[in-house]
Computed example of a mutant assay.
Amino acid sequence: MRTIVITGGTDGMGAALARHFLRAGDRVVVIGRSRAKFDALLATVTADDQSAVSRAEFVAADLSSIADSRRVVEHLNANHERIHALVLAASFIRQRRHTTPEGREASWALFFVSKYVFVTGLAALLGAAERPVIVNTAVPGARVDAIDFDDLDMSEGFTFRQSNAQQRRANELLGILATDQNPDLTYVTWGPARLVRSSFAGEIGMGMKIAAAVLGPLLGQRPAAAVRPIIGLINTPTPGRAAYRGTKKLPLTVGDHDDEDATRLAKAVEADL
């Protein structure tokens, strides 16, 4: 039986993946903020298969908190022997800079630092599985110079666009660190091919709210359809790094100093943990 860990697994694409793998007979660990949403998700599965109750686990956490992220990693290490797939799908969109109670910029903490904690902290459990997979729902293709190494928290000149680009590029570099440590690991940065019908959790502007309300039902994919490529990547992994939009494989973004940048990024994050 495989163990699948999904952050952000109570909503949208994360929930669709949790339902799929529970129905497929896998053990699924869902990490999210709402126990009620997890219970509702599980009810849709157990209506047809009561065995899912014994294979489903919920861990409550706010992953913009690094303390919470580390607590979850410690829990997983203490209670599981291996992880076959780790899906990093937690999301909470903020269009403006926000500081967490820990003093970190919230988007950077959620969309990168927490992922770094999971990828590095669960390396041994992933290494214990045959052909392990990490799917990081960070849209690939950010420019190579998107990271401000001197101001990772973007305390000066924050913009939503620059914040998004920095997170995406950092997650590509995280793949270098992860696959260097484990050559058998499949590490994929992935984004949907088109709009997904979603609640767009977060603090978003009126324009995005209108787009979600109007365009989502008209043009958006249902989450269950959007995640089919992820399911394929987990079921038939290819070791190494890759990038996808939907089912379309994209060339990896390659810079002249990728290895050095990955090492520099890791040192900066470790110094702040």
Rank of each mutant, 00 (worst) to 15 (best):
A146D: 06
A178M: 08
W108L: 12
P183V: 06
F149Y: 15
A129V: 06
N171L: 10
T120R: 15
V144F: 10
V135S: 04
D150W: 01
G127Q: 02
S114F: 00
V119N: 01
A170E: 02
L174G: 02
P183R: 08
L122A: 03
T120D: 14
G127D: 03
K115W: 00
W190T: 05
T137P: 08
A106F: 11
N182I: 05
T137Q: 14
G175S: 07
G175M: 09
L152W: 04
N171A: 05
R161L: 12
A128Y: 04
L185T: 05
V113P: 05
M154N: 03
R131T: 12
G121W: 00
A109H: 00
V188Y: 04
G121S: 00
A146M: 10
D184R: 15
F160A: 15
G157A: 13
I147T: 07
Y116P: 02
F111H: 15
P132W: 04
A106I: 04
F158K: 04
E130H: 14
F111I: 00
G157S: 14
R104K: 13
T159H: 09
S107M: 13
I176C: 07
I134K: 07
R169K: 00
D150A: 11
A146V: 07
E172C: 04
V113T: 14
F149Q: 03
L174M: 12
A193H: 12
V196T: 10
P132S: 06
T159F: 09
P140I: 08
P183S: 07
D151C: 08
A165R: 13
F112M: 07
P192T: 08
Q162I: 03
D148V: 01
N164H: 14
Y116V: 00
P140G: 11
Y187H: 11
A106P: 08
I147S: 04
R168H: 09
F160D: 14
I134P: 05
A128R: 13
D184P: 02
M154K: 07
L152P: 02
A193R: 14
L174T: 02
G191F: 10
Q167S: 14
L110S: 01
E105R: 03
M154I: 05
A178T: 08
V117Q: 12
D145E: 15
R194D: 10
T186M: 13
L173W: 01
A170D: 02
T189V: 15
N171Y: 03
N136Y: 01
R169S: 00
V117G: 01
N164E: 11
A193N: 10
P183K: 07
F118G: 00
A178S: 09
L125I: 05
T179Y: 11
V144H: 13
Q162P: 01
R168I: 06
N171R: 06
P132G: 08
R143N: 13
R161T: 15
A106W: 11
R143A: 14
A142C: 09
L173Y: 02
I147Y: 03
L126Q: 13
V144A: 15
A142W: 09
V133I: 08
L195K: 08
T120Q: 15
F118Q: 01
L195P: 06
L152N: 05
I147G: 03
Y116K: 01
A178C: 09
N164V: 07
E130T: 14
W108C: 06
A128V: 03
S155F: 07
N164Y: 14
N136R: 04
T186W: 05
A124D: 14
R131P: 04
A109W: 00
A109I: 01
F158N: 04
T186V: 06
P132F: 05
L125R: 15
E105M: 03
A124M: 04
R169W: 00
G175Q: 10
